[in-house]
């Protein structure tokens, strides 16, 4: 039996009207994401993967089609603060300490101070940054800053975590570490995670399902199941099963491109 549905996307299209004519960012996307899944959107730039994530987050409005997030319209899901969003950059407020940054959403929601502190402490523990609560963002490395932004997104304990190329700007060593930590975090919390990336190994390593997308118009061309278990480490990237899935993703991406030319 499948888990209940977290996100349901049907015949979704989004066209941006620009000075140079319409841009078909998303064309006829269909996708159902169950609760507790880790789903990656992968594709070249311009394939609409970030746009799709932003539609889920109600930061963009679809032109046609329907979408529900936890059974609600995206706008209602946003108003009810049902998801945490992690951006490409850490997007920390430079005048706030690490702790105050994590408490930002809790302040907006009007939680009492003691609870704000308690939750910030708990989630900084979770991303292993307990010792840095009183530092300012500029005193942290890029990877640490992005962990703070993950703690901030988790601090109000949403069931859904939307991540838009969160590790894209980091070097590969840091990215590997954070990938491992994210898998642990996912298996501990069993949140639904939707993750945008353009890295094949990252997508295959992290995901329970990979959505391969292609540009102009942005559309879903393949959905690949892949689950290497909660206890996976970076070593599995050498295994034949891993390489097989990575190969299929690469084939999908290539097919998307040849269609374009």
């Amino acid at each position: 039996m499948r888990a209940p549905t977290a996100i349901d996307i049907r015949n979704l299209s989004l066209t941006f009207q620009t000075g140079d004519g319409p841009v078909y960012a998303l064309a006829d996307a269909n996708l159902t994401i169950a609760k507790g899944e880790f789903v990656s959107f992968i594709g070249p730039s311009g394939c609409g993967k970030t746009t799709l994530l932003r539609v889920i987050a109600d930061l963009e409005q679809p032109t046609s089609g329907s979408i529900t997030v936890n059974g609600l319209a995206p706008r209602d899901a946003r108003l009810k603060r049902q998801y945490g969003y992690v951006f490409q950059a850490p997007a920390l407020y430079p005048w706030r300490t690490v702790e105050a940054n994590v408490m930002l959403p809790l302040e907006v929601f009007g939680l009492p101070k003691a609870e704000r502190r308690e939750r910030a402490r708990k989630h900084l523990d979770l991303v292993r940054l307990s010792g840095f609560a009183n530092k300012y963002p500029w005193q942290l490395s890029g990877g640490m800053q992005q962990r703070v932004s993950i703690a901030r997104a988790l601090s109000f304990e949403p069931e859904l975590l939307l991540m838009d190329e969160p590790f894209g700007a980091l070097d590969e060593i840091v990215r590997d570490q954070l990938n491992e930590q994210l898998v642990k975090l996912w298996s501990q919390t069993r949140k639904t995670i939707v993750f945008v990336t353009h890295s094949i190994p990252e997508a295959v390593f992290l995901s329970s399902r990979i959505v391969v997308m292609s540009p102009r118009p942005g559309r879903i061309i393949d959905v690949i199941d892949c689950d290497f278990g909660a206890e996976r480490t970076l070593d599995i990237r050498e295994s034949p099963e891993f390489l097989k899935v990575a190969h299929r993703v690469r084939e999908g991406l290539r097919a998307g491109h040849s269609y374009d030319e």
Binding site: A57, L59, R78, L79, K80, R81, Y83, G84, Y85, F87, Q88, A89, A91, Y93, W95, L104, P105, E107, V108, F109
Partner: peptide
């Protein structure tokens, strides 16, 4: 991005002003 962040929190204009724009 910083403004979008406040949007995902469903922050009011006053909150966005006090916590983001003013500082």
């Amino acid at each position: 991005m910083l403004l979008d962040l406040m949007r995902t929190y469903n922050a009011s204009r006053t909150q966005t002003f006090a916590k983001l724009r003013w500082p």
